[in-house]
Structure formats: C-alpha cells, structure tokens
C-alpha cells in the first residue's frame, strides 16, 4: 500500500494558492510528521489526502489508483475537535455502529469502557470522546490514518495513552500514519521523518 500525492495545488475559491506543486508519499507501516506555522495548509493537505477536498491541480492516488469517492474510505482523518465529529443526538453506541466491521479489540485497546456506550456525547469528556473518534476511524478497511492535531487539546497522560494504543494497532495492522501537529517533541517521539511545510 502506498498513498501518494503528486503535484498537488489547492486554493479556496480564487484566493492565493495554499499548496502548489506539493509532493508527498506515505508507505504502509510508516509514520510521518507534518509541521508548520498556523495557516500554512497542514489541515488542508490532510483533508485532501483523506478525500474531503479535491485539489485543483495534481492528484492523490492509492497504489496508483485514484482515491474512491463512495464507500468506506481507506484513508481516515481524525480531527482536533471530537465534539464536532459526533452527532450530538446519538448515543455513543450508535456512533460506533455507524462504522461497519469494527473490531471489539480496538475498543479494549483504546480503553473505551462499556458503560460509556450508553451515554450522550455531551456526557463524556474530550479525551473519552476522542477515543471513540479514533476507534471509529480504525475499521478493518482503514489503510492510512491522518491524525490532524488529534491529541492537541488533551492532557499529557491521555495523549500518551491514546498514542500508545494507536501506534500498537498501526504496527499490528501495518497502517501508515500522517501526524499533523505543532509539537516538535511529539513528532520526534512518533515519526521516522518529519515534513516541514514552512520551507
């Protein structure tokens, strides 16, 4: 498996180009960091790779085939704000049921407790909620994860817990991860190489 973005150019409406002639390549089992100042296009790049935005120039391919537009997406994006990523009117059980073919082990690995399943999203803390969002992204079909500031708003302990379990699962399944973050130390710990978007 090989996720590749070639000559990507993107801009919103007719404004300046946010990304131009940008190349990125991510292999299975690889963990790459992405760093850069605010507003330099980190999140936009993540959204393009996960199929949320279509670049005006260039293309994103998975094993040289364009990304699918329907069906479950092999590249899953995890956002910074879990409270926006779940339907506030659904109980957590239904949130997880939205994904087909989710392993029970993942819930255990991420420390999701059984009793949380019967709660509303507003009755869980940010960290607890983010575990659900991570679990949801890790269905059997997921080949790559884009973690866009996935743990930025969490405390250090929760951050470490979540990243440990994600790393473990990724290693077991041989998934590739793109870590988008502002935190140098986190990237140094997790990634084999770091791309700096400001250069």
């Amino acid at each position: 498996m090989h996720l590749e973005g070639r000559n990507i150019g993107f801009r919103y409406n007719k404004s300046d180009w946010i990304l131009r002639n940008f190349n990125i390549s991510l292999k299975e089992g690889e963990v790459i960091g992405l760093i850069g100042p605010s507003g330099c296009g980190k999140t936009t790049l993540g959204r393009i790779l996960a199929g949320y935005e279509i670049p005006q120039e260039g293309k994103v391919t998975l094993d040289n085939i364009p990304l699918p537009t329907t069906g479950i997406h092999p590249v899953q994006l995890i956002n910074q704000h879990p409270e926006k990523a779940v339907n506030p009117r659904w109980k957590m059980k239904k949130v997880l049921d939205e994904v087909k073919e989710l392993d029970e082990d993942i819930l255990i690995a991420l420390g999701i407790e059984k009793e949380w399943l019967n709660r509303w999203p507003n009755e869980l803390s940010g960290g607890e909620l983010q575990r659900f969002c991570v679990a949801r992204a890790l269905s059997v079909h997921t080949k790559f994860i884009i973690a866009d500031e996935m743990t930025t708003m969490l405390d250090a302990i929760t951050q470490a817990q979540i990243w440990n379990s994600v790393q473990e699962i990724a290693k077991k399944r041989n998934m590739g991860i793109l870590v988008i973050s502002h935190e140098h130390n986190l990237l140094k710990r997790l990634c084999c190489r770091v791309i700096d978007l400001s250069i």
């Binding site: 949320y52 479950i72 997406h73 899953q76 994006l77 926006k84 990523a85 939205e98 949801r136 269905s139």
Partner: peptide, 9 residues
C-alpha cells in the same frame, strides 16, 4: 459528523 459519515461509507 455528516462529512465523516460519508467517508465511513
């Protein structure tokens, strides 16, 4: 969550 739902297939 609607956009995510579409990407979850």
């Amino acid at each position: 969550y609607v956009q995510i739902s579409r990407k979850l297939g």
